[in-house]
């Protein structure tokens, strides 16, 4: 045993009876002796061969049915902590990667509305707050970019477009949009059943808008839409790890946003 359970507690108590009142058979009992005594008295007893056979039979059935290939849940992982960490880096890395993609996408969506090259600096500034708070409702992040966005092109339209594209993309693969984005859409469309109509309208408008204007904007939004779609798919998974690694997530998110933003500008 790594640590003694009762230290000298038992003996200490016994010393409190110096009158020899404890001269019985238990007198020699210290904590280890007591543990031994209890273990001997309480452990098992008769072994039931039938019970063992039933357990082994259940084992056989599980093995042959492939149940033993089931995934390890958290409660099944009894490796000591250091060992457990060895298994993590891949997961953590992926989580951080997803987080940065996701957050990068959000940042790009925010920057994308700015469109012109002069906004690049602003875009960087905006990317940061939206990345450090991944759970912030989309509406807010759009407000932060609204300042740098073109006045004739409200950020909500941009957001709606991004969400709608994400929705379309995700829907076609039979997956569900993450709840934040979905709620956003439902409230924007004024009803769950109106989302489809709302989105087709939004996307049609977006196409109209992008056709006459410079192609940079289209590229920018196209980019951000893809990432927004990833947001929809991955945010459920990456939430845990992105919380755990806020610092890293936000850093790489910011970089991702800046990188993509300038890529859009280049065209």
């Amino acid at each position: 045993m790594g640590e003694r359970l009762s230290g000298d507690g038992v003996r200490g108590r016994r010393r409190a009876h110096p009158d020899g009142a404890l001269s019985g058979p238990w007198d020699a009992l210290d904590d280890a002796g007591l543990e031994m005594l209890l273990a001997t008295a309480l452990r098992g007893g008769h072994s039931d061969a039938d019970a063992e056979q039933r357990a082994v039979a259940a084992f056989r059935v599980a093995r042959d049915s492939g149940a033993h290939r089931a995934r390890t849940r958290r409660r099944d992982d009894w490796r000591v902590r250091e060992e457990r960490r060895v298994g993590r880096p891949v997961k953590t890395t992926l989580g951080v990667l997803f987080a940065s993609l996701t957050l990068g996408g959000v940042a790009v969506a925010a920057i994308g509305s700015a469109g012109s090259s002069s906004d690049n600096g602003d875009g960087r500034g905006d990317a940061h707050p939206s990345t450090v708070a991944p759970h912030r409702p989309r509406g807010e992040s759009s407000q932060s970019s609204a300042g740098s966005g073109r006045p004739d092109h409200p950020a909500t339209a941009q957001d709606a477009e991004a969400h709608c594209r994400a929705y379309e993309q995700v829907k076609s693969r039979g997956k569900a949009l993450d709840s934040t984005a979905w709620h956003w859409l439902v409230s924007a469309a004024h009803g769950e059943d109106k989302v489809v109509a709302y989105c087709s309208e939004q996307l049609a408008r977006a196409t109209e808008r992008s056709t006459p204007s410079h192609s940079a904007a289209t590229d920018g939004t196209g980019n951000s839409d893809k990432d927004a779609a990833k947001t929809g798919e991955k945010s459920a998974k990456s939430d845990g790890s992105s919380q755990g690694s806020d610092g890293r997530g936000s850093t790489s998110g910011g970089q991702g946003g800046a990188g993509k933003g300038s890529g859009g500008k280049g065209k």
Partner: peptide, 18 residues
């Protein structure tokens, strides 16, 4: 034990962990 037998594949750890 039925549950242990069924879920044995999920378990990760050593003897003490078991």
């Amino acid at each position: 034990w039925l549950e242990i037998a069924r879920d044995l594949g999920r378990f990760k750890g050593d003897g003490a962990g078991f």
